[in-house]
């Protein structure tokens, strides 16, 4: 029983990070119907911002988190303005290729700065409590709580504010909303800023939990977060959160009951089966193509 509980805790930690990153994919898709494949690398940049802020500016955790989130958000907006906006009317494939290119650029730019894996300093005291045989580390607990808080905030922004309403309106109908006086470009930039800043926050937390960071760390995590977003129903914010936790749980639980070599294979077969029965994802709704 303690074993199962320990594995569930592990799953919660992994799932929280997937969920936070998945939100970035799903928000951009929701508003632009485009997949921002550079998002995983923005997450990596977040971890590096955290490293630089902690080492060179010697800041404690909260300013480090703020710097990383704001830094990545600005970078996200710049990328949107320079790389994606000129292609908004171009075929969808061009935008996706551009996103892949931006991702490669970010990886290799970071690589050119310094190829060595970096150790993120311990920004938070790390204590481990043993509770009925289950080890709970303060960092794992902190990651889960902070992720849930950030997701709650996002949910409030999207559902309760004018900006959120504008976002939902644009994702509903891009043709009519500008006619109503909604500043589409500004809202798209804001969406990018919010989505990527969550990725930046995930990068910081990832750096706390797995303190060795390198320029390629965003690739695999990015893919898995993207899959989480699709499983949850891409474009749906709550779906992305659920998808992240589902993928985290699957990965950990497959390891818990089967040889760990089967992890990705079994986890992704299960996700494929899920998509066969619910091709639009768990919370996604089918959009009939307008002819």
């Amino acid at each position: 029983m303690t074993y199962v509980f320990q594995q569930l805790l592990n799953a919660l930690q992994v799932g929280s990070i997937y969920a936070l990153i998945a939100l970035g994919y799903t928000m951009v898709y929701g508003i632009l119907t485009m997949i921002n494949f550079a998002h995983g690398d923005l997450f990596m940049v977040g971890a590096f911002f955290c490293f630089f802020a902690a080492i060179f500016l010697n800041l404690p955790f909260v300013p480090v988190l703020v710097i990383s989130m704001v830094g990545v958000a600005l970078l996200g907006v710049v990328i949107e303005r320079c790389a994606y906006k000129p292609l908004r009317q171009a075929p969808r494939v061009s935008a996706i290729i551009t996103a892949l290119g931006v991702g490669l650029f970010l990886e290799n730019f970071t690589l050119a700065l310094n190829p060595y894996p970096k150790q993120v300093p311990q920004l938070l005291a790390n204590t481990t409590w043993i509770f009925h045989g289950v080890s709970i580390s303060s960092i794992a607990l902190f990651i889960v709580i902070l992720s849930l808080l950030l997701m709650l905030m996002l949910d409030l922004i999207v559902r309760r504010t004018m900006v959120g309403m504008a976002m939902r309106a644009i994702s509903w109908d891009k043709a009519v909303v500008p006619l109503l006086g909604v500043p589409v470009d500004l809202i798209i930039s804001l969406t990018f800023a919010i989505g990527t800043s969550l990725g930046g926050a995930a990068g910081v937390m990832y750096g706390l939990a797995y303190p060795v960071i390198d320029p390629y760390m965003g690739i695999m995590v990015g893919w898995k977060a993207f899959i989480s977003a699709v499983v949850g129903g891409i474009g749906n914010i709550r779906g992305a959160m659920i998808g992240g936790y589902i993928l985290g749980a699957l990965e950990i639980l497959v390891v818990a009951v089967m040889p760990s070599t089967y992890r990705d294979f079994v986890a992704f077969v299960l996700l494929l089966i899920l998509l066969i029965f619910r091709p639009y994802g768990i919370l996604g709704k089918p959009h009939p193509q307008k002819v």
Binding site: Y3, Q7, N10, Y206, M220, V255, A256, R263
Partner: peptide, 21 residues
């Protein structure tokens, strides 16, 4: 315990929990 992961994995908590058991 004879546990595995794949290159670039950063989270080993599932495997390590199993090893601990």
């Amino acid at each position: 315990a004879f546990e595995t992961y794949t290159t670039n994995d950063k989270d080993f908590s599932g495997q390590l929990t199993k090893i601990k058991k």
